[in-house]
Design a protein around this nucleic acid. Structure first.
Length: 551
RNA sequence: GGCCCGUUGGUCAAGCGGUUAAGACAUCGCCCUUUCACGGCGGGAACAUGGGUUCGAGUCCCAUACGGGUCACCA
């Protein structure tokens, strides 16, 4: 009775009861076995790779099996919240191809199981809190921060485990009359869970979809359910929300494993069926010979923003995450090039249990393949998009057709070039195509004088036929080289170097330098075709002038 | 420190009691070639350690070691 009074005092009966909510949020009408998954990020403004990683798993799980994927915003920590974070998050996930069927949206939200922002759900939490308090399973705790610290210090001195539990839980058995007095005086309090007395020796068995059966020590901590501002902690919100949103699979990082017994206890106490837990391995990073969890502060590549700024293609990031998320994906991709990722049969069983080192080289390799498979128009559009986001003026000024022509170089064949990795890299790779970026970066070959280079350019320019096909163009180049005293084939030159000034490679090096400013570039003929006759002639003439050649 | 999770080449990984222990990335060598790239061929490189169980163990069990996570009115 005392408990009921306490509950009434704590949570005046104004809103709905737990039973009411059961009818407000009825079981979903979905085909049997259709999963309901969610992404439940905290709107701190920092969107990281882990968000996409978890979201990808959840999204595939739901959509591959006729289920739903929803977005819930865990905004219970006002201190860490950043304005605009929700919008940014939704936008970023959409960029990476992750769409929600339900939940928080840029403008409002949609779905019948909302609200989807936790701060707007306090009615639900309080109804659950009230029910637990009535049953004596929750109680108000008036510990100040100082008291908590004292407990901690005493535990340290005694060599006991840290936390608020058992005999250390000083307000656990506060007489209700005393609690009432303090409440009436308006003392701040948190609502704590009363862990079962027998917990110390007990174990819980939870089946994790990734790790199998886990036998864990039962929770004995009187964890905080509601903070002093009345807003729930993660643990409580997770249980209440995933129940009433009828979430069937909780995909989250393995850092949650230690609190699993808490969640199991809460679900059991409320007689709700817990979701299937899927604890995904952590994303790690190599440092100083050791591995560690990717850190927000130290690792720029953890921020999703990094991939956008660098200009990684969203598909590449998805592909990469999928390769570490589901074993066998890489092999499948190799066997099914060009097939949409959604055709791959994603499964929880294929999620590994051990943490994966984040491997930028692998991402780069995947990116190359993604760009190799893209139509030149798509690549051009992607670059323009990236250029716009990053204000890369040279790219923005370039006509779409020009970019498309550049992107097409070496990519129409059966074995496309794989030298496009990400926006920033591509831009620096192709910058010479843009007059405002062009510069003579590399020097002439050692055996080439400026005068000789000027001579070659003069002749090349005179004979240049923009309309010639590749074979015709190369034949003409050979004639020019041979007439100038160069070997037609490098092998001939190697055999008898005394007979020649050099070989055809030296001649093309001069032209390559004139056109691109670099000693390495894609195929010359293709460059010329992409550049157009006017630009080609201009570059050649300018180079000739640099080398002091005639006119 | 307590508790938990994990451990196959440099990295990601396949393997689910009997294999010459896949594959991919990276790396190295050779070939192709007007440069670069692409491509082709090939090389080096792994079951953390110790005990069991078993005719037989990377695969099952137990220890140890190592790595990671977690012990907030953060999620």
């Amino acid at each position: 009775m005392e408990q009921a009074e306490l509950a009434a005092l704590l949570f005046p009966k104004t809103g709905k009861t737990l039973a009411d909510y059961e009818t407000v949020y009825p079981p979903r009408r979905l085909p049997p076995g259709a999963p309901v998954t969610r992404l439940a990020p905290s709107p701190t403004g920092f969107i990281h790779l882990g968000n996409v990683y978890g979201a990808l798993a959840s999204e595939r799980l739901a959509h591959q099996n006729g289920g739903l994927f929803l977005l819930r915003i865990e905004d219970t920590d006002e201190k860490r919240e950043k304005p605009g974070a929700v919008e940014a998050l939704i936008e970023a996930l959409a960029y990476f191809g992750l769409r929600f069927d339900e939940g928080a949206a840029a403008a409002g939200e949609r779905g019948a199981y909302g609200p989807y922002r936790q701060r707007e759900r306090v009615g639900l939490y309080h109804a659950a809190a009230r029910a637990l308090t009535e049953r004596g399973l929750a109680y108000p705790c008036f510990c100040s921060e100082e008291e908590l610290q004292e407990i901690r210090a005493a535990q340290a001195a005694a060599g006991a485990n840290f936390g608020y539990y058992g005999a250390w839980a000083k307000y656990r058995d506060l007489p209700p009359a005393e609690a009432r007095r303090r409440l009436e005086r308006g003392e701040p309090f948190v609502l704590r869970w009363r862990a079962p007395e027998a917990a110390a020796a007990a174990t819980v068995t939870v089946t994790d979809a990734v790790r199998g059966a886990l036998v864990l020590p039962a929770n004995e901590q009187d964890i905080v359910l509601l903070k002093s501002n009345g807003v729930p902690t993660y643990h409580f919100a997770h249980v209440v929300d995933d129940h009433f949103m009828r979430v069937t699979h909780a995909v989250r990082g393995e850092e949650w494993l230690p609190s699993l017994p808490v969640h199991a206890q809460l679900f059991a106490a409320l007689a709700w069926e817990p979701p299937v837990y899927c604890h995904t391995p952590l994303l790690l990073k190599m440092e100083g010979g050791g591995k560690r969890k990717l850190s927000k502060r130290k690792d720029p590549e953890l921020a999703l923003d990094f991939y956008r700024r660098e200009g990684y293609h969203p598909l590449a990031v998805r592909e990469y995450l999928m390769t570490i998320l589901n074993s066998g994906y890489e092999e499948w991709r190799l066997a099914h090039p060009g097939t949409d990722m959604e055709e791959f049969s994603f499964s929880l069983a294929k999620i590994g249990a051990s943490g994966a080192l984040f491997d930028l080289q692998k991402l780069n390799d995947i990116s190359k393949n993604v760009f190799a498979a893209l139509a030149p128009e798509e690549t051009a559009d992607f670059l323009r998009q990236w250029a716009e986001a990053m204000s890369v003026s040279a790219l923005l000024k370039a006509p779409r057709e020009y970019l498309t022509a550049i992107a097409a170089i070496g990519r129409r064949e059966a074995n496309p070039r794989k030298d496009f990795i990400y926006g920033a890299q591509i831009f620096s790779f192709i910058s010479f195509f843009f007059d405002e970026c062009f510069q003579a970066e590399d020097p002439l070959p050692d055996n080439m004088t400026g005068a000789e280079a000027g001579r070659i350019l003069t002749e090349y320019l005179a004979a240049y036929d923009h309309a010639a096909g590749k074979d015709g163009w190369f034949a003409a180049l050979k004639r020019l080289a041979v007439a100038g005293g160069y070997a037609e084939k490098p092998k001939d030159y190697k055999k008898q170097p005394e007979l020649y000034k050099g070989h055809i490679g030296d001649v093309s090096a001069v032209i390559r330098l004139a056109l691109s400013g670099r000693k390495n570039s894609p195929d010359l003929w293709e460059i010329q075709q992409a550049m157009g006759e006017q630009r080609v002639r201009g570059r050649l003439a300018a180079a000739r002038q640099r080398y002091g050649g005639p006119g």
